[in-house]
Design a protein around this nucleic acid. Structure first.
Lengths: 120, 120
DNA sequence: CACACGTATTGACAGATGTCGATATGTGCC
DNA sequence: GGCACATATCGACATCTGTCAATACGTGTG
């Protein structure tokens, strides 16, 4: 519970084991960071995102994504939804097709998540 | 199934939808990348890693980790095992205690995973 | 307007994952 | 050797996750 650690900074505690170890990230921040990484924690989502990132014009629609990953259309739709909810891709309905592109803040989102866990 | 239309194979296909979209990352690479992110896809693991990263001396033992995250000792041990298997932390048995530290290649591991998905 | 087509949603299911209590393993101390 | 302690493993359980077939929803086209 965030233990404001008014405890004695000194003594034998550290001697018995190791140092008291600061609180690290708070639960909320950690949840947010984990949410971003969770979106990238599936091989097929990684592939899908990489395809979109490399796509000509920077965007791709579902119909172009199913074949490369070898998944059913609903499954690909599901994965893209997760990527979109994580803020990693954007979805734009244009005519009959839904075009996905890497979100502008995607890179920064991931980088800041990394920085939160592993500060320089 | 790419709809075996006997129609003209060449032209309207690309015109109808978007570009064919390159293959993106291969399955093996994507699996590796996802493995790294999967280790970071749990809030408690994120917290644990951040605690170790910020720990005095750069290392912490299980006994110092259970309290901050509020999990049982077996659960913390389990999470640290996963982080270690992912190559993000190292484990060193010293006396009765097991000291965990951020692995030297941890940052590079994560960074290269990011770069694999989202090339600059 | 009806139809074809691209995409999203639903329902169902197997497998993975996070968690704990109980217990085993290993290590230093008396 | 025996005991106390720190950590790891095991067994069990609830929940989450990835997947597909079936189906619903929009949208342009005839």
């Amino acid at each position: 519970m965030t233990t404001p650690l008014p405890l004695a900074p000194t003594p034998a505690d550290a001697a018995g084991c190791c140092s008291p170890a600061g609180p690290g990230l708070d639960a909320d921040t950690a949840t947010g960071v984990a949410r971003t990484f969770k979106a990238l924690a599936d091989p097929n989502r990684v592939r899908l995102l990489s395809i979109v990132a490399r796509a000509e014009g920077g965007e791709a629609c579902i119909c172009d994504l199913t074949d490369p990953v070898g998944l059913s259309q609903p499954t690909v739709s599901h994965h893209m939804r997760l990527l979109a909810e994580a803020g990693l891709v954007t979805r734009e309905q244009r005519g009959r097709w839904a075009y996905f592109a890497v979100a502008p803040q995607a890179r920064q989102l991931v980088e800041s998540s990394v920085a939160a866990v592993l500060p320089a």
